[in-house]
């Protein structure tokens, strides 16, 4: 006989993947169609389809807007949303803390500082004007993570998650001040960094789409591979060790992977908060806490949410474009309060 406290069957069957993929494609299509210049769905589909197969595109279709402006932006936004949400879900499992996320534990701020310094100093790599910013963002993201974990360990000798979050929040505030200082004393052309620190996908191109896709495939693959280990961590780190998980290796590899992925995201779009914090919670409400289902669901949820946030940012007060971080923070903060109070009541 089953107990009345039984949870409903939580399946993440192929049909769920199909529905989420359809929802994602529909949102992407919406984001390409809607903007200062409205474009019909049929024109969008025709242009993308013909471009995919190398066929000539009819003159009456706004080819340049679809293929060179909106499509790379939509792809970048979707990939960033999926990446940030995946990182948030993995961190929340690894640290067994629903408040863990790149932005709350200071990794995003570290990456932002790295990117801002690289931009202000004009740091580039041979053959890639953008590589310097990316490398610097990744290095600072990882450095921030190491610093925060070291401080947390020094504080209580146990890497307690509350200590990590507390130090992360303080670190984030500290880094924000440093970034403001760098921006204030930077040359005139880097003043636009202010806008960038709140997040923006304006002017992204296919090169950045490729970089994000590559980072998501490589880093996302590692995180997805550790879904069983993340389940064990989410139950408890001691428990994970007792059932045979190599806790040190899994923790280190996951945290490095997350830092790299967040570093790449931040170097392209700036800091976009709340995606990694809120979207895993929504995905958890849909598919349960098992990371085999949660990680893919979080990626879809993050991509769809960020696409809608970007659409709002560029159309709400058109022709003025808001920073995407403004929209995600406004929506995310409210959503988070609702989710948290519902979760508390459910317990």
């Amino acid at each position: 006989m089953n107990d009345t406290r039984s949870l409903r069957q939580e399946r993440f069957a192929p049909v769920t993947y199909a529905l989420l993929t359809a929802a994602l494609l529909a949102t992407m299509a919406l984001c390409v169609c809607v903007g200062s210049v409205p474009i019909s769905l049929s024109d969008t589909v025709t242009a993308v389809w013909r471009a995919l197969w190398g066929l000539p595109i009819p003159q009456n279709i706004a080819k340049n807007i679809i293929l060179n402006v909106r499509l790379p932006r939509v792809l970048c936004v979707a990939l960033s949303g999926a990446s940030l949400s995946l990182c948030g879900a993995a961190m929340q499992g690894l640290l067994r803390n629903p408040l863990a996320d790149g932005s709350t534990i200071g990794v995003s701020s570290g990456a932002a500082l790295g990117a801002v310094i690289a931009m202000a100093a004009g740091f580039t790599l041979p053959g890639s004007s953008y590589g310097g910013v990316m490398i610097s963002a990744m290095a600072f993201a990882f450095g921030a993570l190491v610093l925060i974990l070291s401080l947390a360990y020094a504080l209580d000798r146990s890497l307690a998650t509350n200590s990590i979050i507390l130090i992360g929040v303080i670190f984030t505030m500290f880094i924000s001040s440093i970034i403001s200082l760098v921006v204030t004393f930077a040359s005139e052309h880097t003043r636009s960094l202010n806008f960038w620190t709140l997040g923006s996908f304006s002017g992204v191109n296919y090169h950045q789409v490729k970089l994000l896709a590559l980072a998501l495939v490589a880093c996302g693959g590692v995180v997805l591979r550790y879904s069983r280990e993340l389940n064990a961590f989410a139950v408890g780190e001691d428990n994970a060790r007792h059932v045979g998980v190599n806790v040190k290796r899994v923790k280190l590899v996951t945290l490095i992977t997350i830092s790299v992925l967040i570093g790449v995201c931040v170097s392209i779009s700036g800091t976009v908060s709340f995606v990694g914090l809120v979207m895993p919670h929504i995905a958890r409400m849909l598919v349960g806490p098992n990371h085999r289902r949660l990680l893919p669901a979080s990626m879809f949820a993050g991509a769809i949410f960020l696409l809608l946030a970007d659409l709002t940012a560029r159309t709400l007060f058109s022709p003025i474009e808001l920073s995407i971080g403004v929209v995600t923070s406004l929506v995310g903060a409210v959503a988070f309060v609702i989710i948290f109070s519902r979760t508390r009541k459910a317990r």
């Binding site: 949870l7 389940n231 060790r241 045979g244 190599n246 958890r284």
Partner: peptide, 26 residues
């Protein structure tokens, strides 16, 4: 290796708590 150890020794800790809504079976 941790998994070799786990096949030989099973540990029931004094402090057990779960942060998320995993099922008993999971």
């Amino acid at each position: 290796k941790p998994n070799q150890l786990a096949r030989r020794i099973g540990v029931l800790s004094q402090r057990n708590a779960v942060g998320y809504a995993y099922t008993v079976e999971e």
